[in-house]
Nucleic acid binder design. Structure first.
Lengths: 271, 271
DNA sequence: CGTGTACTTGAAAAGGTTCAAAGAGTGTGG
DNA sequence: CCACACTCTTTGAACCTTTTCAAGTACACG
């Protein structure tokens, strides 16, 4: 029926379907059945969809950020993912033809809307589209498994450090600073996502600041010693390196963001 | 090119692609480009594929059981899933075009082999096939998230109880007894999967037996008081109900396996 | 019948949570 | 412009669940 087409925008180059986009734009014969995607602005606290809502569309973040959460029977929430520009959203709906998550925005955000009809058309007609969707969904599962593994095998310091590095990496992929950023989520969100008490998050951030690993001021974070943070992720050596933090902090002056590269439309997580 | 076709077998009715199977069999015109799937026998400890192996095929368990594990950088393993007859396997390969897991068998097992070509053909030509695959993969992610949520919100007693109920439920769906079964995995596997020490698993099983919730003898498990086990999953009341277990154990005489129903090809987990 | 692997059990230790209280930034209305 | 209410955040101390370490038991296989 129709192929997907995104109006060009600064965000598009990071979009989960950008390669597909480009393919369509370059393929003039395909231009005839192109469907211009609509996008919409949401504000902090707005919900994109709730668990149980009919599965009508997939979404792509254009700007801003969002969180997806599931709800337990006892009605407490579990945040399962955060989304940033370019991320594909809503594939939780394929399982039961209704959404399984609540997605809400952490700040003013803009999202593209892709109706299920468009998705079906894409799957029917575009080999690349199929690949991208399957890859993305497969990667989602792997990311969740990685997350599970982290909870099982890593201490809370390692998890929090990994979380910050992951954020840094994801932002860097989108052309933003990998060393300085503003958290769009609260401590409560972070704690919930990482499966710890918010007091623990707070204590650990303070501790990391004291060790000159990060600089933290409310939501504003600066990663001061990324190499050291990476080491911590691999083996928890906090507590052993108490006194000698002064000799370390200068190593960060060469801000080589040499993260392992991966395509946006189904990227792995970095720890 | 070709559609998928499974030789009829007792297992097929529980297969992840059975509806698709039936569709093909009933559609005589589709029979011309049918591809008979091959299946192969594996033994305990054999590996189906390893992380890094080229992604050549999907697999469906016909009999037996298997486990999928990921490996951390520190080389310790994390079991991410167990598989039983009818389960679809190998979709971890879509993300990077190579497998991300190691899959090995827990007992003598038989699996169907579906080459990626067949999968592509299925996706191209069968709307139902697309639906099933996407649903299955979406459900995989949801299951992993559920698992993550369990680790964050539930005590170890709740997780282990939930694990046993989940096994019971999955076996029941396959026409086996939901009350008595033999674990094909070791305590080590269970502990690894649930993210606890094997000593904890051992202690909890003993404790549950003392409370007349289960009967356990090495790998052989009998669920004695399923209703009570369900309650424990919802709210951890072990420790409070120490002394009065005698009045409870008779409630299980009506073994109504009234689990919430769901289709095999993308089922949710039951806790 | 011995050896190895899987499993169980006990006691001490650790990591993280919970409870309690206080500090800091934000917005509202007088 | 300040005071008040509010939410988000930090910090301290006691507590608790689960882990770790250390033996010991039991079943399976040659």
């Amino acid at each position: 029926m129709s192929q997907l087409y995104f109006k060009s925008s600064p965000t598009c180059e990071y979009c989960a379907l950008s390669r597909n986009c480009t393919e369509n734009i370059n393929n003039t014969s395909a231009m005839q059945n192109v469907q211009v995607l609509t996008h919409k602005i949401y504000h902090k606290g707005d919900t994109l969809f709730c668990a149980g809502d009919a599965f009508n569309a997939l979404y792509i973040m254009r700007s801003g950020s969002a969180k997806a959460s599931a709800t337990t029977i006892e009605a407490d929430e579990q945040i399962v993912d955060f989304y940033f520009p370019g991320d594909l959203l809503g594939t939780d709906g394929f399982a039961q033809k209704q959404h399984a998550h609540n997605v809400s925005f952490l700040e003013t955000s803009s999202v593209c809307y892709i109706s299920v009809n468009s998705v079906n058309a894409l799957l029917t007609h575009s080999e690349l589209g199929r690949q991208q969707l399957l890859s993305n969904m497969s990667q989602n599962t792997l990311n969740q498994q990685q997350q599970l593994m982290n909870v099982h095998k890593m201490t809370s310091i390692q998890r929090l450090t990994g979380f910050l590095l992951d954020l840094s990496h994801r932002l860097a992929q989108r052309g933003l600073s990998s060393q300085q950023f503003t958290l769009s989520m609260t401590r409560i969100d972070i704690a919930n996502y990482l499966g710890m008490a918010i007091e623990t998050v707070s204590r650990l951030l303070t501790s990391m600041q004291q060790q000159r690993l990060i600089q933290v001021q409310r939501r504003h974070i600066t990663l001061v010693n990324i190499p050291e943070m990476r080491k911590i992720c691999l083996s928890d050596l906090l507590g052993q390196t108490e006194g000698e933090s002064d000799g370390m902090q200068h190593a960060m002056l060469s801000p080589t963001t040499d993260y392992p590269l991966s395509s946006i439309g189904g990227e792995g997580r970095f720890y």
